Simulated assay, not measured.
Amino acid sequence: MTDSNTPPIDPSNQEQLRAWDGDQGAYWAARADRFNEGVASYHDEFFAAAAIEPTARVLDIGCGSGQTTRDAARRAKKGWALGVDLSTRMIELARRLAAREQLANVTFEQVDAQVHAFPEECFDVAISRHGAMFFGDAPAAFANIARALRRGGRLVLLTWQPSDRNEWTTAFRTAFAAGRELPARPATPNPASLSDPDQVRELLTSAGLTDVRLADLRAPMYFGRDVDDATEFISGQFGWMLNDLDADTRARALDNLRASMADHLTEHGVRYGSAAWLIQARRA
C-alpha cells in the first residue's frame, strides 16, 4: 500500500494508485508470467514497430513487471531503458527480474507518468503495452510524455479495441452477469479509453505529436492450460463482479464461466479472440 515514500500522484489518478498499489497490483505481480503469456501473440509486432536502436533511450509507461522494459533494454545494448508504474510490488518484481537477468542498462521507478518531471527531450522512444489507457487526465499525461521525447522521437502503444471486438471481455461479462444487468464501466479511465481511433488522433495531436497511425491487430489471448486453470485465474482477476451475488447466483456465474472456458479450450490451452490497436506517433 502507499506510504510517505509514494511519489507525487495527480488527484485524477488516486483511484488507479489505490488499485495498482493495492490488491490489483499484488494480483498482477503474483501472476506476472500468466499476464505476459496472455498477450504474447502481440509481442513481436509491438517491438517491430518500436524499432529500438542499439543506442536508444527508452521510456516504458505502465511497465508492470517489466517484461517490455527488459526486452527494450536488450535491444538498446548501448542505450538504456526506464520503466515506470504505479505499483510498488510490480516495480519491485521488475527490479528483481532485471537483476536476475543481469541487465545493467535498465531501471524502474514508481511514478505517475501524468505528472512526473521526466527530463525534457530525453527519450528516443516511449512505449506502452496496455499501460497508457488508465490516465485520469489523458491530455495532460500525453503532453507530459511528449515533452520527454526528443524532436522526432516516437511513441508506440498497444491498446485495446472496443469491447465488442474482444471476445474475451464480452464472454466474461456475460458469464459473470448470471442473468443480471452489470453496471456499465465508467467513461474514463478504463481499458477501452483509447479504443476510438478519431479520439486517439485528436488526443495525441493536441499533445504535440504528429503522424498518428493506428494498425488493426487481431490475435488469440491465452488464459490457462485447461478449464480449471483458466477459470481460477479469471475468477480471481474479475472477482469483484461476483461480490454482490448470493451463493446460488455466484455458483451459477462460475458455472457459466467454466462452460465458456470449455468452449474455448484448444490444444494450446484456453484461448479467446482479441483485437488491439498498434498506435504510432512522432514528436513534431
Results as ranks from 00 to 15, higher is better:
D112V: 08
A30I: 14
L97W: 10
C63E: 06
G83F: 00
Q102S: 13
V39H: 14
F47L: 14
C63G: 04
A50Y: 01
N144Y: 06
A94L: 05
G79F: 00
G136F: 10
V39L: 15
L82N: 01
A146W: 00
A29E: 15
A143L: 06
G83H: 01
I145R: 02
R150A: 08
M90C: 09
G66Y: 09
R34D: 14
F123R: 00
A30P: 13
K78I: 10
R57Y: 08
G152V: 07
E37F: 10
E121G: 12
G66R: 04
R75A: 11
F46I: 14
D60M: 12
G152R: 03
N36I: 13
R70E: 00
C122L: 05
L86G: 05
D137K: 07
V106S: 01
F47T: 07
L86C: 07
D60H: 04
I52F: 11
A73D: 03
V58R: 05
K77M: 12
L103G: 11
L82Y: 03
L103A: 07
R31M: 10
G136A: 07
G79Y: 08
A126Q: 05
E92W: 02
A132P: 03
A81S: 12
P119C: 07
T68Y: 11
A49S: 07
H130E: 08
A48V: 13
D124V: 01
L93A: 10
E101Y: 08
A117E: 12
V111Y: 04
V115Q: 09
I61W: 09
R74T: 11
A72E: 13
R147S: 03
E45T: 12
R89T: 15
S87F: 04
A51L: 02
C122V: 02
G38Q: 15
W80A: 02
E45I: 14
R31L: 06
A81C: 09
A51H: 02
G79D: 03
V84E: 00
R151T: 13
V84L: 00
V111E: 11
E121Q: 12
V106Y: 00
F134P: 12
A40G: 02
I91L: 04
K77Y: 12
